[in-house]
Design a protein around this nucleic acid. Structure first.
Length: 657
DNA sequence: TTAGGGTTAG
């Protein structure tokens, strides 16, 4: 009878003394063709009592592999002199399932003895297996040793390298393929494009080849092309590939929607989502994640809620990335309560769910709540990762939780095995720097084991801006100007610090440098949703039909506020103007225009929600506090970093941002 | 035999 009444556990070794002939070592016997044992289970219906008799050891190995008994299969292999290609295929598949590199090595040693290392089919499987184990050297070796390199073998190595992120090697292998005269197939283009999406030259090269060889219309290739151009930020190229694709499926549509959502064009993303329905292509959970992201970029709660309703109708809320995206969307649109409700409704939260909720609290300045969620995360057994610490440390710095932040930073590596990267150091420098502990912030930078990047020096510069430290700001800028030569923001910040110190020669020198270098400052832009329409404002924009009314209201408010103690912060204006002119410029800031427009066009008691593309200016912050008291309004402003909730003359950030 | 689109930070 079959030696195991019940299927053996993979850990159970076979006792050698009880080995039937078929299990004997290879050299011991060759008379094992018919295995006289009955298997008390069938391959496909394990619960049934159907008997299956293996015809020979090859068959037995295949059955054992299928049943998850790899160790036993290997024992049988050791007694089988003529394993077939199919037997090796099963064995390699089982190694992949068991995720066992050591068993894979044993199988490979044996298949080399049998000459199967020259079988391109087996080589393909081996390369895939080594790719799974992240053993690129082994994958390369298998490839090199296979004399007959079929397109499958080439594609397998392309895929392995692409998955491992060895992008440059993928491109050079792709070029080698071209020289080798092998006929490419659509898979070759898909794999190559995935890896070269960061290089303009490589994408255009592969696109050109695919066009010439007639593969660009293949739906897999066109989808990857849409994605490759999207990742380069070449939205119009993505769109052209999409428009010209003869076949568009849910993948193609999802790729183009993601392209717009990620490249700052949420309106187009939502428009395409509507067109998709018109083309009778049903969206899936992946499509919905990009659509939700588009709503998060748009910051318009109404649209997001409609999309959420659709998600619920289609049952996508049980697919974790979907609620994860919803948490971020609600948090970014200013409704933390709804974000929390989605978070609470997730049955099996993954690390991204937790990180998203922590981020939500962080951007709303609720540091203690963020830490509490972090602690719940740890208690629930989910391991924090790099992103977790960026968010939770950011939460601490947003509200000035210095001791807590330092404690978390110190525990990162020791308790959680997460090695700090530059962003974590930047959070701590920001945390100490904002609190005025600039010397300690500098010590942290000096002690860093990695190169402090622009994030770290930028955090120090920001702290110098708050505490008017010219000398240290200049030191930070020595690094920043070298690291980010085209970032005009650093020059503006330093100019602000000089202006505060009334070093006007230095201000002018910096302004001249910015001009000479042709650097473009990002101009401030704010937007507001009124009666389901979105209005955007810039300081030079006079297009809004109510702009006169808006200006008049601001002048009136300014007068009233001055009587209550408001002093316009004219030092923020870096132009050589008199105080009156500076005040006028300050009143023209985009966030003030949006605020006045909101006051004019909303009903009493209604919350005003404004978004801004840059950090909220200090003068606008003061004005918004005044207005929240004067007009008895709740005003929520989202700037590039976080939310400010204004009520009764106070802001949730406690002027700490 | 193999493939394409998605979630968290900065």
């Amino acid at each position: 009878m079959w030696p195991f009444a019940n299927p053996p556990s993979p850990q159970t070794p076979l006792p050698p003394q009880s080995s039937p002939k078929g299990f004997l070592p290879k050299a011991a016997s060759h008379s094992y063709q018919k295995t006289p044992y009955t298997i008390k289970f069938s391959l496909h219906t394990p619960s049934s009592e159907t008997s299956t008799r293996p015809v020979n050891n090859n068959h037995l190995i295949q059955i054992l592999c299928n049943r998850g008994h790899l160790k036993q299969a290997l024992l049988v292999l050791s007694g089988e002199p003529n394993p077939t290609q199919k037997t090796y295929e099963y064995l390699l598949l089982a190694c992949a399932r068991e995720n066992s590199p050591s068993d894979a090595s044993a199988v490979r040693r044996r298949l080399i003895e049998d000459g199967f290392d020259q079988d391109p089919f087996i080589s393909t499987k081996l390369i895939n297996l080594y790719s799974q184990f992240n053993s690129l050297d082994d994958a390369r070796e298998v490839f090199e040793k296979t004399r007959e390199k079929t397109i499958y073998v080439w594609n397998a190595l392309l895929r392995a390298l692409a998955l491992a992120g060895a992008d440059e090697e993928v491109v050079s292998l792709y070029r080698e393929m071209g020289r080798s005269q092998i006929a490419f197939d659509s898979f070759s283009y898909s794999h190559a494009l995935k890896a070269c999406a960061g290089s303009e030259r490589a994408v255009r090269e592969v696109h050109g080849h695919a066009l010439r060889r007639g593969f660009s219309s293949c739906v897999h290739v066109s989808t990857t092309l849409v994605d490759a151009y999207a990742r380069l930020g070449w939205v119009s190229f993505s769109r052209r590939v999409f428009d010209e694709a003869p076949v568009k499926n849910v993948f193609t549509w999802s790729a183009i929607i993601a392209c717009y959502a990620k490249n700052g064009s949420p309106f187009e993303a939502l428009e395409l989502f509507r067109s998709m329905a018109g083309a009778n292509v049903l969206p899936n959970s992946v499509t919905m994640v990009s659509v939700i992201q588009a709503c998060a970029v748009l910051l318009v709660l109404g649209h997001g809620k409609l999309i959420h309703a659709y998600v619920l109708r289609r049952g996508f809320e049980s697919i974790v990335p979907v609620p994860n995206a919803l948490i971020v969307m609600y948090a970014k649109c200013g409704d933390l309560e709804l974000a929390r409700r989605v978070f609470d409704g997730i049955r099996k939260r993954d690390v991204v769910s937790w990180n998203s909720m922590i981020l939500g609290y962080a951007i709303h300045g609720l540091g203690r709540e963020a830490i509490q969620v972090f602690e719940e995360m740890v208690d629930s057994g989910v391991r924090p990762n790099i992103v977790t610490f960026v968010s939770v440390l950011g939460a601490c710095s947003h509200i000035g939780l210095i001791e807590e932040g330092q404690r978390l930073f110190e525990s990162m590596a020791s308790e959680y095995g997460v090695t700090p990267i530059a962003e974590h150091y930047a959070c701590v420098v920001d945390l100490l720097g904002r609190a005025g502990r600039l010397n300690e912030a500098c010590e942290i930078i000096e002690e860093m084991r990695i190169e402090p990047g622009p994030a770290v020096w930028g955090a120090l510069l920001g702290a110098c801006r708050i505490h008017n430290n010219v000398e240290l700001a200049e030191r930070a800028c020595e690094h920043l100007f070298g690291l980010e030569p085209t970032n005009a923001g650093n020059y503006v910040l330093l100019a602000n610090i000089y202006a505060e110190a009334e070093l006007w020669d230095e201000v002018n020198r910096l302004k001249k440098t910015v001009e000479e270098k042709g650097l473009q400052k990002v101009s401030g832009c704010s937007w507001i949703e009124v009666k389901k329409k979105i209005y955007s404002f810039t300081s030079v924009d006079e297009l809004n039909p109510q702009i006169e009314l808006v200006h008049a209201l601001l002048v009136k408010l300014s007068g009233e506020m001055k009587e209550s103690g408001y002093v316009p912060n004219t030092k923020l204006v870096l132009y050589d103007l008199n105080d009156q002119e500076k005040e006028e410029l300050l009143l023209g800031h985009s966030e003030k225009l949006a605020l006045a427009f909101g006051l004019i066009n909303s009903s009493k008691g209604e919350t005003i929600r404004i978004s801004k593309n840059l950090r909220l200016c200090e003068d606008c912050h003061s004005v918004t506090k005044f207005v929240s008291r004067f007009a008895n309004r709740e005003i929520i402003v989202r700037d590039v970093n976080r939310f400010h909730h204004f009520r009764d003359g106070r802001c949730s950030c406690a002027d700490y941002w």
